[in-house]
Design a protein around this nucleic acid. Structure first.
Lengths: 140, 140
DNA sequence: TTACTAACTTAGAATAATTCTATTATAGAA
DNA sequence: TTCTATAATAGAATTATTCTAAGTTAGTAA
């Protein structure tokens, strides 16, 4: 019995071969892949896999709290298999996305004009920057 | 001469009637409209206006630093005519977006494993919550 | 004031991301 | 082993956004 199967069985969704392949690809993956990235990878082993399967699976995983959907890139969604709340930084040059594992919640006090209108439940920070590779490129 | 024209002329883009209508609609607008919201509004006065004009205009305004593009809603882009850096809070019930005019930058120190990889240039916080209207609805 | 042209508007086609549908297949419960 | 709810698939549909080609115009400069 595979480790992935052990980890995810009994969570309320079926573990099909395609899903196991998606879970394996995502396991420990810090590249923040898009749906197309996942599709391209799974297609190598399951050439008939469809986008519907990829989208269905990431939706199930999101709903079960096993995956985060990231909105930092205005062009498309990225996914993060680490469901622990954390933040992200995107390189404005190449689009690479990195993780920021710091909880800033204690510092993020909201003004009265906001707390009087909303009950806050969470926060996510998008940091923007330039990665080393892109900075080097621009210097030369 | 209208105030909008006075404010935006000489900024490097032509002020057409459609653009003036868009700028008027956006002026002081805190509803964070989508492209469709803008299109629907401008269509009232200019029935032949096209989506291309709306998208072209918001792109020009974004490039000129007169408008922010907001990614807090995974479903579609929203626009904010206040270009001063600030943050947003979205109601997870109805999708309403509010502004948060606090600069938290001083508190957002990044760990070494991030600063060694990225030179940070900015940040934007997505707060999530429930607005009063939605909270009341759920109680009843 | 007029003439000019780069920039703009428009309708509609194209693209890209995502979702839906109908059908067939299967994981996992009984 | 059987059964059925759930999932996979191909492909159509939908939605957001961008592109294209043709006609129009804002704003510059004579």
């Amino acid at each position: 019995m595979e480790r992935i199967v052990r980890k995810y069985r009994g969570k309320g969704f079926k573990l099909t071969p395609q899903r196991i392949a998606i879970l394996k690809f995502l396991e420990g993956n810090t590249s923040h892949p898009t749906a197309e990235d996942i599709y391209t990878e799974i297609k190598k082993r399951y050439p008939t896999v469809s986008f519907a399967t990829v989208y269905n699976t990431v939706q199930v995983l999101r709903d079960k709290g096993e995956l985060l959907e990231i909105t930092i890139d205005p062009a498309r969604k990225h996914f993060d298999p680490n469901p622990a709340p954390h933040h992200h930084i995107m390189c404005t040059g190449c689009g690479r996305i990195g993780d920021v594992f710091v909880d800033y919640s204690a510092a993020l006090n909201l003004p009265d004009e906001v707390t009087s209108q909303f009950t806050t439940t969470g926060n996510h920070i998008d940091f923007y920057g330039v990665c080393n590779a892109c900075r080097t490129k621009n210097i030369n």
